[in-house]
Design a binder for these strands. Structure first.
Lengths: 161, 161
DNA sequence: GTAAGATGGACAATGTGGTTGTCGAAATAG
DNA sequence: CTATTTCGACAACCACATTGTCCATCTTAC
């Protein structure tokens, strides 16, 4: 048996794997009418959910401040992926909702990811891919999805109010 | 047999796995005298290599502009991880080298990563972890390491001069 | 040997994403 | 009815990346 690889290759492989998938996703999304979509957008749209959400809640879901969340909303609104409406029950709240285009982006993303996964299945075999997923699930304990990755990588302290 | 998970969980698992490892690394690094170390720093120090490098070359290795690379060097110099020296053979070049502290950070990181990998080995079994690494190696084809992750996630176009 | 081009490093300006802090309006608790 | 909390907006600031420009220096061609 050969010797184990050094520990530091593991994180590199994981990051590279993530990047490989996301790059492929956006290459295909661009081809399917979403050239302006960026990796973060999927996270935000996912967090918005089917029923809508407020900026504060959104920030809480994503692990960033409400201001940062509001900025994303503004961007995605400009791109036509989100819309905001007043809440009739609470004049303070403005509900952020996905537009048809936003839903389309998510639907296509899901489909494309399924295709990419099928590609991995061809390369690795169904059993080994399932094992890979199961194992990652074990070691990560399925933490919440957070998109404060930029600042996190660079190292700025995160933390809401 | 149960049905396959949707494709979009795969990238999430990979990212979460990466984050899990890196968070654990830096928690331990902070305990071992490197509280200011941040995820990017390891990438930079690794790219600098044992013999030193110029800012332009560094940027090329990392997939960012020379200005961005120079800023990282400036930061790491301030933290005591890097030092710059004039090249006697070429008055234009300034060689960036790791300091003793920089080498120490890398050494400790390698050691800690080994420990984290051992933890995963305990949780998953040696064979399955090896399979996971091998499989990731297959699907990623071992691309170069790039640290333009922040801008990449957000979506800004990358590209040197 | 000198002139033209390429390379390395620094500086300035800009854009984006994030945070803190503050404020006013509206809902809720007492 | 008042006090507290919550939501959204505005302003300022910082970090990191980009492009563009400029100068010094090395290299190459003539």
């Amino acid at each position: 048996m050969s010797t184990d690889p050094p520990g530091f290759v593991l994180p590199l492989l994981l990051l590279q794997g993530f990047r490989t998938l996301v790059d492929a996703l956006h290459a295909e999304l661009a081809r399917q009418g979403h050239p302006d979509a960026r990796p973060v957008h999927g996270f935000v749209l996912q967090a918005v959910g089917p029923v809508g959400i407020t900026a504060v809640e959104l920030g809480r879901h994503l692990g960033v401040t409400k201001q940062a969340a509001a900025k994303h909303v503004e961007t995605l609104e400009r791109l036509g992926y989100l819309e905001r409406a007043a809440d009739p029950a609470d004049a303070r709240r403005k509900i952020v909702r996905r537009t048809g285009r936003g839903a389309d982006l998510l639907a296509r993303s899901a489909e494309i990811f399924d295709g990419l996964r099928a590609g991995w299945e061809d390369a690795l075999g169904a059993d080994r891919l399932r094992a890979l997923e199961d194992d990652l699930h074990v070691v990560t304990r399925g933490g919440p999805l957070r998109l404060d990755v930029p600042g996190w990588l660079a190292g700025g302290g995160a933390g809401d109010h």
